[in-house]
C-alpha cells in the first residue's frame, strides 16, 4: 500500500500508545466535538496546538499524518465550494447570479479545518491503538448495555475480526487488480467508461475469496472451541493507571479552559 491509511495501526511505545483505549476514545470524541461548540479563534488555536502536540507525542511522522488527509481531499473541496456559494453575506465576486461571499470564504475554511481535525484525531487514535485494544475499549464502554441484553460482546468480537481482516482485504484487492491488469483489463488506467465495468473481474474473485476466508475462519474458530461470545474470558483486563488519570484530567482541563474562553467571549 502506498500510503498510510486512517485505520492502520503503527505499533510503538509512546505514552500515547500506552494509554487506556477508553481514555483515548473519550479524548478523541471530545477533541472532535469541541470545534463545533467553541467557534472562537483563540479556542481553536489552543485546540489545534493541542492536537499538534499530541501528534508529535505519537511519534508518527508529521508528513505521513498530513498525507493521510489525501483521503478526504475531494470531500474537503466539495464542502468548501458548497459553503463558498451558499453562505449569504458581502459579495466578493458574482458569476451568473451566484455570489461568492466573504462569509462564505470564512465558513468554507472553518469546514476544512473541522474536517482535517476529524481525520487527524481519528488517525492518531488508530495509529496508537491496536484494533484489539480498540475493540476491548468499545466492549468495556458498552458493557452496561450488555446487562440490558444487548449483544455487546458479539459486537466486539465482530469488530475485532473485521479490523483484523482490513489489511488482508486491501492486499487481496491490490493483488487481483494487478492480476487482471496483467490480462489487459483497464482498471486503474484508461477511460472512465471502460474502468467501471473493469471492476467486475475484481469484485467477483474478491467475493469468492472473502467467502472462502470466512468459511476457513469459521472452521478454525469452531475447531478452537468457540461457542458463543458469552462464556469467553479475556487475556487483557483494562485497568486505569495514574497516567490514564493524569491524561483524563489534562483533556478535561483543556475542555474547561476552552469553554471558559467561549463564555468570556460571549
Amino acid at each position: 500500500m502506498s500510503l498510510l491509511l486512517p485505520g492502520m495501526h503503527v505499533a510503538g511505545g509512546t505514552p500515547l500508545h500506552r494509554l487506556d483505549p477508553r481514555v483515548k476514545m473519550g479524548a478523541s470524541l471530545l477533541l472532535m466535538v469541541l470545534p463545533f461548540v467553541a467557534p472562537s479563534l483563540p479556542s481553536n488555536l489552543l485546540l489545534a496546538g493541542f492536537v499538534v502536540a499530541l501528534a508529535i507525542l505519537s511519534a508518527v511522522p508529521l508528513m505521513a499524518l498530513v498525507r493521510t488527509l489525501r483521503v478526504v481531499v475531494w470531500t474537503g473541496i466539495f464542502m468548501f465550494v458548497f459553503r463558498l456559494f451558499t453562505t449569504p453575506g458581502t459579495p466578493l465576486l458574482t458569476v451568473g447570479g451566484i455570489s461568492v461571499t466573504l462569509q462564505g470564504l470564512g465558513a468554507g475554511a472553518v469546514q476544512i479545518y473541522r474536517l482535517c481535525l476529524l481525520v487527524v484525531v481519528s488517525s492518531l487514535l488508530t495509529y496508537t491503538t491496536s484494533p484489539a485494544q480498540l475493540a476491548h475499549g468499545v466492549e468495556a464502554v458498552l458493557e452496561p448495555l450488555a446487562r440490558l441484553g444487548l449483544p455487546v460482546r458479539e459486537f466486539a468480537m465482530v469488530l475485532t475480526i473485521a479490523l483484523r481482516f482490513v489489511p488482508t482485504l486491501f492486499e487481496e484487492i491490490e493483488k487481483i487488480v494487478k492480476a487482471q491488469e496483467a490480462r489487459g483489463a483497464l482498471i486503474r488506467t484508461g477511460p472512465l467508461w471502460k474502468r467501471v465495468p473493469g471492476w467486475v473481474p475484481v469484485f467477483v474473485p474478491l467475493f469468492v475469496s472473502a467467502f472462502r476466508r470466512a468459511e476457513d475462519l469459521a472452521t478454525a474458530m469452531e475447531a478452537r472451541g468457540f461457542r458463543s461470545a458469552h462464556q469467553r474470558t479475556h487475556l487483557y483486563r483494562l485497568h486505569l493507571t495514574r497516567h490514564d488519570l493524569a491524561a483524563s484530567l489534562l483533556i478535561l482541563a483543556l475542555g474547561a479552559v476552552i469553554l471558559f474562553v467561549e463564555w468570556r467571549m460571549g
Binding site: S130, L163, R213, D216, T219, A220, A223
Partner: peptide
C-alpha cells in the same frame, strides 16, 4: 487441537 493449511485464514485476533 487443529492447525490448517492457510495460516492467514485462521487468525482471529490482531
Amino acid at each position: 487441537g487443529m492447525v490448517f493449511q492457510n495460516p492467514e485464514n485462521q487468525f482471529v485476533a490482531s
